Amino acid sequence: MTTPSQQPSPTPKPGRDPAERTHAAAGEDVDVMAISPVREEGMLTDEPPAETFGADVVAQAREIIARYPQSRSALLPMLHLVQSVEGYVSQEGVAFCAEQLGLSEAEVSAVVTFYTMYKRKPCGEHLVSVCTNTLCAALGGDAIYRQLAEHLGEDGKPLGHEETAGTPGEPGSITLEHAECLAACDFAPVLQVNYEYYDNQTPEKAVELVDSLRRGEKPAPTRGAPLSDFKSVERQLAGFFPEDDDQFRIDVDGPSQAVETLRGAQLAAERGWTAPAMAEDVPLPEVEAK
């Protein structure tokens, strides 16, 4: 039972008094866009938003799924496909993978957040990964990362891990990240651009490299395939390559070894070193029962 003081007011008022409706209608002179905390182009139109994953992407997803006996095994390349479209894995991308593979969004999110190769924020045209693991760090990797962070930052603030200089996805934009071991200790310190190697780096060489990228140039990697852009590499990681054999070879082939890489094997051959033969039928040690 309400008292006279608790009679509903036409519009909400501060306090616990009830109201006839839960919102106050805006007058004709109210600028809805100006007071909205979210401003997106087209938010006041009746047109549906553009579909991020159209029929062509769905067809490519089906092609990936067909490679595996169980559809859930296709999740990793599917996430690379999503990144080739969006430049990162959005919540919409998570939902797309879940729908295509018959998984829950939680299952997909668990994989996305486990692997550092899947990004949760839009990436730049180029992803620059600086190895800061033990050997690279000791030989200058930390100094390289620090120099790039300061060089790519703005207003005296260094660029942070997985932050982007420029507008994500636009030409010349660069996302910088710390990277764990890049498996190139023989060329330390190293960095990668879109997963292609640039070996034996110095802070000065690294700055020159990112400046070239920002100008729209694509300096040749030290070894490996020619440099492309982040989205194109993600498409390759999803398993899609040019049908033309010559272009395919250009895109994926490249020398991946050097004198430093082969030196250990050469020394072993010159000195007759061999690995000890493994004994056959060696019994496993006893393990105490739990």
Results as ranks from 00 to 15, higher is better:
23 H>Q: 07
147 Q>R: 15
194 N>V: 08
168 P>V: 08
158 P>F: 11
120 R>C: 05
136 C>F: 07
161 H>T: 03
244 D>K: 01
90 S>M: 09
141 G>S: 09
137 A>S: 15
45 T>C: 03
74 A>M: 10
146 R>E: 15
108 V>P: 12
70 Q>N: 13
262 L>N: 11
96 F>C: 10
208 E>M: 01
79 L>E: 03
193 V>D: 02
174 I>L: 12
238 A>E: 04
59 A>W: 01
146 R>W: 01
177 E>A: 15
10 P>D: 12
266 Q>D: 13
181 C>F: 07
6 Q>P: 00
243 E>G: 11
281 D>H: 02
43 M>C: 07
112 V>H: 06
100 Q>I: 12
1 M>Q: 01
82 V>Q: 02
247 Q>Y: 00
223 R>I: 10
158 P>W: 05
233 V>F: 13
218 K>S: 11
41 E>Q: 10
251 D>G: 01
65 I>G: 09
183 A>M: 13
128 V>F: 03
130 V>R: 03
235 R>Q: 12
52 T>H: 00
29 D>V: 05
73 S>F: 13
225 A>K: 14
262 L>A: 15
28 E>N: 13
77 P>I: 11
268 A>S: 14
4 P>T: 02
52 T>N: 00
276 P>M: 02
223 R>E: 10
14 P>D: 11
198 Y>L: 14
269 A>H: 10
3 T>N: 05
285 P>Q: 05
53 F>E: 02
260 E>L: 12
189 P>E: 07
129 S>D: 02
73 S>I: 07
42 G>Q: 08
289 A>Y: 02
42 G>M: 08
81 L>A: 02
132 T>F: 01
173 S>A: 12
111 V>R: 13
268 A>E: 15
236 Q>Y: 07
93 G>E: 07
91 Q>Y: 06
120 R>L: 14
157 K>G: 00
156 G>D: 09
95 A>R: 14
14 P>H: 07
5 S>I: 06
252 V>T: 15
203 P>Y: 06
235 R>T: 04
123 C>P: 00
185 C>H: 07
36 S>C: 14
196 E>A: 12
166 G>R: 05
245 D>A: 08
285 P>C: 04
114 F>W: 08
94 V>R: 06
260 E>C: 11
20 E>G: 04
50 A>P: 00
275 A>E: 11
21 R>K: 15
157 K>S: 06
112 V>Y: 03
46 D>Y: 00
252 V>G: 01
285 P>H: 06
163 E>T: 11
74 A>C: 11
45 T>Q: 13
175 T>R: 12
261 T>S: 15
275 A>Y: 04
122 P>S: 05
183 A>D: 14
49 P>E: 10
64 I>R: 04
26 A>V: 05
85 V>D: 03
140 G>V: 13
266 Q>V: 15
81 L>Q: 04
46 D>C: 01
42 G>N: 11
116 T>Q: 10
271 R>P: 01
95 A>P: 00
264 G>D: 14
207 V>M: 02
37 P>Y: 07
24 A>K: 15
150 E>D: 09
135 L>N: 08
147 Q>I: 00
81 L>S: 02
